[in-house]
Design a protein around this nucleic acid. Structure first.
Lengths: 223, 223
DNA sequence: GACTTTAGTCGCATAAAGTGACTAATTCGC
DNA sequence: GCGAATTAGTCACTTTATGCGACTAAAGTC
């Protein structure tokens, strides 16, 4: 994001930081240092000896102050020559940011996917690739949970999945599938959100913490 | 694969060419130009203006004379510094080669996955990444068909899936799922392979050629 | 206190997956 | 020639999973 005249920068690491705001996905952009009217994905020319993963994490930290809860490589992009840098190739990373952490540093701002400013051709491909990565990993990685706060209601979780999958889900089926997958565990807390019955709060149950069981899930009874 | 002293080579494109031989997966390696005892994945420093996809295709053509039936990017690898080149980053591609086409040029040879010579750390990660790519795309892309000749028996197809999935499949379930997916169509040919009942030959039915139907598959009747 | 709104559950109907047993067509051994 | 062995292909039954409507529960609104 600096020193664009140096010809040594032959590749960059760009990050697509995603958060969910107001029932829409948003990504973080940074104001260009040259043309202040234009925006781009945060990027970095890795220093000597700096691995790709570390470069991606540092780029995210420069934007948000802390590193995302989850990062994964999207791929290398080099076909469109247009990029804020002179680099031939850029390696894109996807990072997921829960809504709380989502306060960006100065110069950075969130844009919803539907309302993105114009980006370089290469960075547009990266955003598309990041969307595909989200969709393809949705059922293997805890993507929805990394976009939510640590505890959440099942309705919030369902809405997040609906947002990520671009389709409506049936409530009963969704909860049954959740039970079968042992993905969440209930907390003791309930939340009353305006009108309607209060909802129980749940938390993500990482694979390591899942108690041994043999396929059958017993309901918790509250006598 | 040339000019390893030039410091301008800041990234490479490496290809993992995969074929199925004798019920095992094999990948194509090239003898190192320096140390003739060592092998590596075919790689290339892209020329100016050469896109990643084109560089990968050319690397495969240099090895086999023709381009693979299917190629896809695996990702960018840059954490382990060890690579036959001096490059900081290498972009890996997966290419699938049907068994017939699998005659390599001089200096290249097939090695089964179980019997690989020692590779650089980075290239070992690439081979692992390519395996994961195969497994993850198996049900979206026609991977099994690209490793088989144009016509094949359903038993051959099932064995290919078993090889790629690392698990045994039940014959009746496999065929039922094939029918539901409209992936293959029967030819008029049959093949008698030693003893046992002859098997009908099938061919892959690309999505474009699938005739319109409404969910129900009618069996072909041979009166 | 009736009505609306959101949470959470139940139960049935249908679809899909797992599996063993069956029939079919060929070669091999004698 | 004929039965055993071998591979291909199908059937029928059972078990699971999914789709979905209808129900109960607990809050706020008027």
């Amino acid at each position: 994001m600096r020193d664009r005249s140096a010809k040594t920068a032959s590749y960059t690491v760009d990050v697509v930081l995603v958060a969910a705001m107001r029932n829409e996905l948003a990504i973080l952009l940074v104001r260009n240092s040259g043309d202040r009217e234009r925006w781009s994905l945060p990027w970095r020319s890795p220093q000597a000896g700096e691995s790709l993963d570390v470069a991606a994490t540092r780029t995210a930290q420069a934007a948000l102050g802390e590193s995302p809860d989850w990062m994964d490589q999207v791929g290398a992009f080099g076909d469109g020559k247009r990029h804020p840098s002179e680099a031939d190739v850029s390696v894109a990373y996807l990072g997921l940011v829960p809504h709380e952490t989502a306060t960006p540093h100065a110069g950075y701002a969130w844009f919803t996917l539907a309302d993105l400013p114009s980006l370089s051709a290469r960075q547009r491909s990266m955003v598309e690739g990041a969307s595909r990565t989200i969709e393809s990993r949705l059922d293997q990685a805890p993507i929805a949970f990394r976009l939510l706060p640590p505890t959440f209601t099942l309705s919030e979780l369902q809405h997040m999945y609906e947002l990520l999958l671009h389709k409506r889900l049936h409530k009963a089926s969704f909860r049954r599938a959740l039970q079968a997958a042992w993905l969440v565990e209930p907390t003791e807390e309930w939340r009353s959100e305006g009108r309607g019955r209060p909802a129980q709060l749940f938390r993500y149950l990482p694979k390591k913490r899942r108690r041994p069981h043999r396929g059958l899930r017993f309901d918790f009874l509250y006598p």
